[in-house]
């Protein structure tokens, strides 16, 4: 399965819903999407990873790149993920210390209120 990306606005947050496989081949699409959002003035992002079937280190790099970009504008990037196989990758890299990870989009939005 390829990568799917949709975005929607929730108050002052932009929710990016990612589905499919984020790997070395598809990650550039996600990177472009995050860059476009930040250049368009969206500095508060929630990336919904519940539909992600696969994530590799390139995907992690793109998310870290996105986080660096929004932080440069005093923004935020939080993740929504409850899938153990994806969470494990954040844990073994220590990136759980860098990303706020929530169990639902509602929780992620509420954390910023």
């Amino acid at each position: 399965m390829d990568l799917s990306l949709t975005t929607r606005q929730e108050g002052n947050h932009t929710v990016v819903v990612v589905g499919g496989e984020i790997d070395v081949y598809t990650a550039p699409k996600l990177r472009e999407q995050l860059i476009d959002l930040v250049s368009g003035g969206s500095y508060h992002l929630v990336v919904d990873m519940e539909g992600v079937e696969f994530l590799d280190s390139t995907g992690l790099g793109v998310l870290v790149g996105g986080l660096k970009r929004v932080r440069a504008h005093d923004g935020s990037l939080s993740l929504v993920c409850t899938q153990e196989r994806i969470l494990k990758i954040f844990r073994i890299t220590g990136l759980t210390k860098v990303f706020p990870i929530h169990s639902s989009v509602e929780d992620a939005l509420a954390a910023h209120e």
């Binding site: 070395v24 990650a27 860059i35 280190s57 390139t58 790099g61 793109v62 870290v64 790149g65 660096k68």
Partner: peptide
């Protein structure tokens, strides 16, 4: 820096 590379600065 990340735009050119694929590693996200890792």
């Amino acid at each position: 820096e990340d735009v050119a590379g694929d590693s996200g600065g890792f």
